[in-house]
Design a protein around this nucleic acid. Structure first.
Length: 119
RNA sequence: UCGGUUUUGUGGGUGAUCGCUCUAAUAAUUUUUGUAUAUUGCUGAAAUUAGAGAGGAAAGUCCGGACUCCAUAUGGCAGCGCAAGGGGUAACGCCCCUCUAUAGUAAUGUACGGAACAGUGGAACAGAGAGAAUGUCCGGGGCUAUGAGCCUGACACCGGGAACGGGAGGGUCAGGGGAGCCGCCGGAGUGAAAACAGCCAAACUCUGCGCGGAGCAAGAUCAAAUAGGGGGACAUUAGUAGGACGGCCAGUCCGUAGUCUCCGGGUAAGAUCGCUUGAGGGUGUCAGUAAUGACACUCCUAGAGGAAUGAUCAUCCAUCUUUAUCGGGGUGCUAAUGGGACCUGGUGAAGUGGACAGAAUCCGGCUUAUAGCAAAACCGAACUC
RNA sequence: GGUGAUGUGGCCGAGUGGCUAGGCUCAGCUCUGCAAAAGCUGCUACAGCGGUUCAAAUCCGCUCGUCACCU
């Protein structure tokens, strides 16, 4: 797999162990980063968004944004051996529908600063 | 011109940069996985090039099918569903035409529809009375001391083979008794409904028709090792015990525990197939009031799998807001034919910024969500010719 | 993706088509020096929208929410 897109966390056991042993950080009210080291030498990405976050269209959009953000980050040369799970918290039915990509990027930048400091 | 009804179509476009998934091609050349070998080769991946890449509802999963497995799913009962009359369809609870009721000036919309003399059951409260009812009230009509209504008995008559039972809102006769009576007509009152064998079957039920069950997580194939398990042969005998056909019965099918021998199940959210060409779309002609069908030509248009279609920028077309300007109306304000609040249309400029919503085996419907734009047919009103 | 169940006050929970029981909680009053207990009184409901019916929590559709099962 020589794709420029990041690897994806697939096993539910991986999500579980990340929840047990990983660190947590809230960049904003609505986003929670759950992260920890891995021994793959690459970033692995997971996205958690319950049905309360919004419709399928909204959840799909959040997943694509997350993937796009890490793809750009990889291209810029930032490659860390870490598992990161982005957890979107349900706030308001209209909130995620109106959210802009720029706001998402700002939140992620703030979050990744803390993550890099840990690694 | 204004207002309305119905039916369709569309569901932002173009370009640039960086990405994702699938398919095809790659000649003498490149990198690499596995395998085989005398180099070759075969196979997978990368890279390069080309092509394609969410919807009208993809949604809800409410109906109907295709497909797969259970037996090529057979008969009956139970259960479930449907219901005017015709037609369409693979099929339907869908669609079309016609009948009926109802709303509208109209175009048209909406809704119901088998059976209540087969049976069981229901109608709170109110009311005299709620289903072979009635001891309400008022008026009319009729019967009645030539003895009514009422009570008792007998007979005709009805049911039953007979014994016997009934003998009534009806008939005849005899006895008692002694003043009112009437399944009459019209009205009042109660109620949703008041006597019409009326109403209720989206109450049970009856009649007619239809339905076997489960679902692509169906199901099939592939690989290392041991138990369970499966195939074959022998033994065993009664087609028994038992099992399958996911409610029950019939009916059909399968069918032992032992010994020998061969195969190798499940899991690792394993891999591959199922997996997208189909009751398909478009155009034309013909048949039909129509739904729809027939024929001819033409097109190939997503197949992911923790699940691809994204991000940014520019520009254009709609939308909305502000403003300038040019017309039309102008019943309020003003002393005013002027001005002009306000309403409305065109043009220019600036800003804003895209409804509902994401394929998951595939089709036909229904239902629900939906900004705006466009088209056709028809109806009503006013004006002009 | 598929299949099924369920929804009645703040909570639990009955309900043959005819004014929606009952318990807990809460509020007020009585009792007490003050509380508790007890007694009395009260508040707050049929998930939403249509249809059938004289009349729907109940029968029939559609929509919404919650829960469970199948690899």
């Amino acid at each position: 797999m020589e794709n420029s897109s990041p690897l994806i966390i697939k096993r539910s056991s991986d999500f579980y162990s990340l929840k047990q042993s990983g660190k947590r950080y809230w960049p904003t009210k609505w986003l929670l980063l759950n992260y920890g080291k891995n021994d793959l030498g690459q970033i692995r990405l997971g996205v958690t968004a319950s049905r309360k976050v919004g419709s399928a269209v909204v959840r799909n959009k959040l997943k694509r944004w997350s993937r796009e953000y890490f793809r750009k980050s990889l291209k810029a040369g930032n490659s860390n051996a870490a598992d990161i799970n982005l957890i979107f918290k349900p706030i308001d039915k209209e909130f995620y529908k109106v959210l802009k990509y720029q706001e998402f990027v700002e939140a992620m930048d703030a979050g990744m600063l803390v993550v890099r400091k840990y690694l």
